[in-house]
């Protein structure tokens, strides 16, 4: 499984937690107070609760169910029901590779995460989920005009929309569910970025209307 884009760095400030998915693996991605990011199996080893519902205290992620704390190494550091207990080192989460580049969070469930290399500097725009296959998203991108012009593909997920450059990074979440992370040329006006955000919405709608098994 290669590294996959799971969202934008902007959308995960310090002390926040989110849920992601790569290759069918349910993942919790969270950022400590010190800014460091981590990606784990989205499951507290104690009672199987999704850690993505948890909360960050300092540089530890705590499970919402019983408040068990896990430090960034994944090791359990505190069990509130037994405040004086030093939890055994055997209690730990399953960690995955995670890294950030160009404002995008990349996760690898089998290896150290390697960010997809962009051939030019781009700015993050937004991340969304379409209820269709990855192929349907790509097909819709070829046929969804922006201000009257069809996007021109220029290889590896890059498109030209007139003078604007745009990258469409996809992460298949299932046969009919795809996460799409969109980046654009840097330095665009707010007005253009709002228009591009709406173009993303039209793209999703078109993909869902024509894609196989769309919502």
């Amino acid at each position: 499984m290669p590294s996959m884009p799971v969202g934008l760095s902007r959308d995960l400030p310090p002390k926040r937690v989110m849920r992601a998915s790569v290759g069918g693996q349910d993942i919790v991605v969270w950022r400590a107070s010190n800014g460091d990011i981590a990606a784990w199996d989205n499951r507290c080893p104690h009672r199987g609760m999704a850690l993505s519902h948890g909360f960050v205290r300092g540089n530890a992620l705590a499970c919402l169910y019983h408040g068990w704390h896990y430090e960034q190494s994944g090791r359990c550091s505190y069990i509130p029901a037994h405040p004086d207990l030093d939890p055994p080192a055997t209690i730990h989460t399953t960690r995955f590779g995670v890294t950030e580049r160009d404002g995008v969070i990349w996760v690898d469930t089998t290896d150290t995460a390697k960010p997809g290399m962009l051939t030019e500097p781009l700015d993050p725009l937004r991340s969304l989920i379409a209820e269709v296959s990855e192929a349907a998203v790509e097909a819709a991108c070829h046929s969804t005009p922006f201000e009257g012009e069809m996007p021109q593909p220029s290889g590896s997920g890059l498109y030209a929309l007139g003078t604007i450059r745009l990258a469409l990074l996809t992460n298949p979440l299932g046969p009919n569910r795809t996460q799409v992370t969109v980046l654009t040329s840097p330095g665009l006006s707010l007005q253009t970025r709002l228009a591009l955000s709406r173009w993303c919405e039209t793209l999703r709608r078109n993909a869902e209307a024509t894609g196989t098994g769309g919502a």
């Binding site: 969202g7 959308d11 937004r126």
Partner: peptide, 14 residues
């Protein structure tokens, strides 16, 4: 209806 695909909603709720 999970919030996974809605980062802006998530941060506004927070």
């Amino acid at each position: 209806l999970e919030h996974d695909g809605f980062p802006a909603i998530r941060n506004w709720l927070y």
